[in-house]
């Protein structure tokens, strides 16, 4: 198993945010992390990325506790895309993507053709190559999100963790983004709000509630009316359409 959480807990200011989560990533494909606001999705992602140190339990990357690894080693394996990111200085889209090459370069190494190719490929895969020369401040919310994903791809990670990447995007860009993630061929953990998107695009779903992992598995095994009522406090009906699920709320 590549990346897993073993009974991991985390508290902020005395309040428990993540409580005893044990979770494994599927060998391949997309794992959707769903749950209401404040259920601990973002915190769990930060713990998985090694950006926070758990107050209990541990995160393992290739069976080694993540805190025993150097930041650079982690960054060569795993990329994390935050929910909201902004900069004060003026960088072009391409310069932002190029930041993704930092963990793979030494302090004095020059910019290699391999770096160049990785950046070009990341821009290509996120369909942002035409916007490469544009300053960050002129990009729309959706374009920024794509550029941040391109930055993560430039790290050539084996695991990609994304915190609600579809926030603030219109429906077309949301769907484009989810399709993009599905086609990347990288192991992905993505926090999502929309249960229908999670059901449609994720190979597995993990449901968080009050900092705990309630259930994990294939969408059709995880999502049912009772769980939605318990976790999200809404009534829903679930119907099977084609080879997927459709959740309707009322």
């Amino acid at each position: 198993m590549t990346l897993r959480a073993e009974d991991v807990s985390w508290a902020a200011g005395g309040a428990p945010i993540v409580r005893g989560v044990t979770m494994r990533l599927p060998e391949q494909g997309v794992l959707g992390l769903v749950g209401p606001n404040g259920s601990g999705k973002s915190s769990l992602l930060r713990l998985l990325a090694g950006l926070r140190r758990g107050t209990g339990g541990a995160i393992y990357l290739e069976d080694r506790p993540i805190e025993s690894l150097r930041r650079k080693e982690i960054a060569r394996r795993l990329a994390h895309v935050e929910q909201q990111s902004d900069i004060d200085i003026s960088l072009t889209a391409r310069e932002v993507v190029a930041l993704g090459r930092l963990p793979l370069r030494g302090a004095w190494n020059g910019w290699s053709t391999r770096d160049e190719d990785a950046v070009a490929s990341a821009l290509q895969r996120t369909d942002m190559i035409d916007r490469a020369a544009q300053p960050w401040s002129t990009l729309s919310g959706g374009e920024r999100q794509r550029i941040l994903i391109a930055r993560a791809l430039a790290q050539e990670p084996q695991e990609l963790l994304l915190d609600e990447p579809t926030n603030h995007l219109d429906i077309r860009h949301q769907l484009d983004l989810m399709r993009l993630l599905g086609n990347l061929g990288t192991r992905i953990v993505v926090a999502l709000h929309d249960l229908n998107q999670a059901a449609a695009f994720c190979d597995e779903i993990a449901v968080m509630h009050h900092g705990q992992l309630v259930k994990q598995g294939a969408p059709e095994d995880v999502l049912d009316e009772e769980l939605i009522r318990k976790v999200f406090a809404v009534e829903a009906t679930i119907s099977h359409v084609g080879c997927g699920l459709r959740v309707a709320f009322f």
Partner: peptide
């Protein structure tokens, strides 16, 4: 450029 968490994720 994108803050401390982003710097940490970049190694």
């Amino acid at each position: 450029a994108f803050g401390e968490d982003a710097a940490a994720s970049l190694g």
